[in-house]
Structures are given as C-alpha cells and as structure tokens.
C-alpha cells in the first residue's frame, strides 16, 4: 500500500516533450482545426485547393489580417483588447491615400500616417491605462470615432484614388509563385512568436496578462507593458492600412470595416482569449486566420453563399471559447 502511494507521489516530473505540447498546448486545437480545414478542402474541392495559384490568392487577401493580427496579439496577451484596429486600418489607408494624392512621396506619407496612428493608440492607452476604462468599451468608441475621421478624410466622394506604380509593384512582388508580402507577414508572425515565447520582454507581457497583481509584485511595470502593447497594436493596424492602400491603389469607406471581428474571431479560434490575457501564441493566431480564410475559400470555390462563412466562424468561435474554458479559462457564472 505505502509503496504504491510513495511511487505515485515520487513520480518524476514529465520530461519536456515538444510532441505532447503540440497535442495539449494552446496551439493544439487550432492545429487540428487547420488540418481539418485543409483535409476538407483537399477532399471536397480537390487538388486545386492546394495549388500555388489558389494559395497565392488566399495569401494576397491574408497579408493585411496577418500583419494586424501579429501586432495586436501582444495587446490580447497583456489583457487589453483593442477593438479599434479595423477602423485604424481604414483611417490609415485614408490618410495615406490622401497624402499620396497630394503628391507626397510614399516614405514620408507612411511615416506621417504611422505617427498619426500612434497618437490615436496613445489616446486608447490614456483612457484604458490612465483612467482605468474598460478596454472593450473604450476601443469601441475609438472604432466609431476613427471611422468618422476616415470618412471625413475621404470626402464626399467616399474614396481617394492614389495609385503609385512603385508601391503597387513592391506589394504585388512574388517569390516562388507566392506574394512576397504574404511570406513577409508569415516571417513577421514567426518573429513575434519567438519574441513572445523566448524573450524576457515576451514573458513580461504574458505575466501581465496572466495576473497583473502578481506581475506588479514581481517588479514588472504593468502600465508600461499595456501602453506599449496598445501602441504596438495601433502601429500594426497603421502598417496594415498602408499595405492595403498600396494593394488597392485607393482607399474607400468600406476599407477595414469589420476587420476587427474578422481578426479577433480568427485569433480566438487560434487560441487567444480577448477576456483574459496570458494565453495564445502568434503561430496559433496566424493558423486561425489561415483556417478561416481556408473555410471562406472552400465555400467560394463551391459557389456557396458567403454568409455561411459567418455562421461557421461564429460556431468555431463558440467552440474555441468553450475549449479555452475547459483548458483552464475562467468559468462565467
């Protein structure tokens, strides 16, 4: 009797096993979802689904969401959600297109646009970190305000044409048959993943999101981390807007509308939580975006109404939150 008990208590800690992490970690469920989507695409649509041409089409549409997702991940990780990213993309593309149409060169137009985005991110940070505003509600306000500003910038026509041939060539460059910026966005995701999981800074961000009081007691400046995360998310959205304007050669009222839900739904499916910080991984987030894009692509190739995408995304979202809770997230009563 006693020996058995002793045996079970004295069991050595399980050795680090990357394969078990794949099966149980925060990226596990999205890995399976992603494989399932690819499998469904392969069997239902056929080899065409995984052809370079098709992946290249998906990649082109994924560039902006991937960039925005990679930069807004740290905000989610540190426990503040920034809903204004969609409008920020719209605002950034409108301001950038306006400056280009006024004859500015792309580099200085981009610099001014990014600074403007950082200013609005700063307002978010003051309201949320400075005054203790509820992040969801405060950034919802910023979402609407920025949309208004973008629409005012776009003027009565509701669109600005700012086609710049150098920008367009740069953005639509391809390597190995895939869009260069898509590969860059994937590289960005990989860098973000390394920073979040392997560096001191990334661990600080996770600590703040996991338990801000404990993090504060451990000597981490919670305020600084959250301000930096909100500024980073604004910067990423600004960058996304500039790339968007470069891709389209114009900015319009619809640019970026609803992007925040598209990105956050995918990030949550990918293992992030918008209600508690400290969980999620940029790789999972990117896989979430790829999976949702895959679903939408399958329905598109099968000529099925795009509204079914929203239904599937909504159901996946609920399933993802349920999984997050079962994995140790806060139960709501």
């Amino acid at each position: 009797m006693t020996t058995v008990a002793a045996d079970t208590t004295a069991l050595p800690p399980a050795p680090h096993n990357p394969w078990r992490d794949v099966l149980t970690g925060s990226v596990a469920s999205i890995t399976f979802t992603f494989i399932a989507v690819v499998a469904v695409g392969w069997f239902w649509v056929g080899p065409k689904f995984l052809s370079f041409g098709n992946i290249s089409i998906m990649g082109t549409f994924l560039i902006v969401p991937l960039i925005v997702g990679a930069f807004s991940g740290p905000a989610l990780l540190s426990g503040v959600v920034d809903l204004s990213i969609g409008s920020m993309v719209g605002f950034s593309s409108a301001l950038f297109a306006l400056l280009i149409s006024l004859g500015w060169d792309p580099a200085s137009a981009a610099a001014v646009t990014l600074v403007a985005c950082l200013c609005f991110g700063g307002i978010n940070a003051i309201a949320i970190v400075g005054f203790g505003a509820e992040p969801i509600a405060a950034t919802l306000g910023m979402l609407v305000a920025l949309r208004g500003i973008a629409w005012v910038l776009l003027g009565s026509q509701g669109a600005i044409f700012a086609f710049n041939i150098d920008m367009f060539n740069l953005v639509s460059m391809t390597i190995f048959g895939l869009p260069l910026f898509f590969l860059l966005a994937i590289l960005l995701t990989a860098i973000a993943a390394v920073i979040v999981t392997k560096t001191r800074m990334g661990r600080h961000v996770q600590a703040v999101g996991g338990d801000d009081r404990a993090a504060a007691r451990a000597g981490i400046s919670v305020k600084k981390v959250r301000v930096a995360a909100l500024l980073l998310s604004a910067f990423g959205a600004g960058l996304g807007g500039i790339v968007f304007a470069g891709q389209l050669g114009s900015a319009a009222r619809a640019t970026g509308v609803g992007l925040e839900f598209q990105v956050y739904a995918a990030l949550m499916i990918g293992g992030y939580s918008i209600l508690r910080g400290g969980v999620g991984n940029p790789v999972g987030g990117a896989l979430g975006l790829l999976a949702v894009a895959g679903v939408s692509n399958i329905l598109d190739l099968k000529a099925i109404s795009p509204y079914y995408v929203n239904i599937i995304v909504g159901l996946l979202l609920l399933a993802a939150v349920l999984l997050d809770r079962l994995r140790g997230g806060d139960a709501y009563e």
Binding site: A133, E134, G141, V144, A145
Partner: peptide, 18 residues
C-alpha cells in the same frame, strides 16, 4: 456624427473606469 459619438463614449468609459 460618429467622431463625436465615439469620443463621447471614450470619455464616458474613462469616467466610469475612474
């Protein structure tokens, strides 16, 4: 209109949080 509505919401939430 949306600019005003949005800014008012941010201010209101900031007051609520404070």
């Amino acid at each position: 209109q949306s600019i005003f509505q949005g800014l008012i919401l941010i201010i209101a939430v900031a007051i609520d949080g404070y």
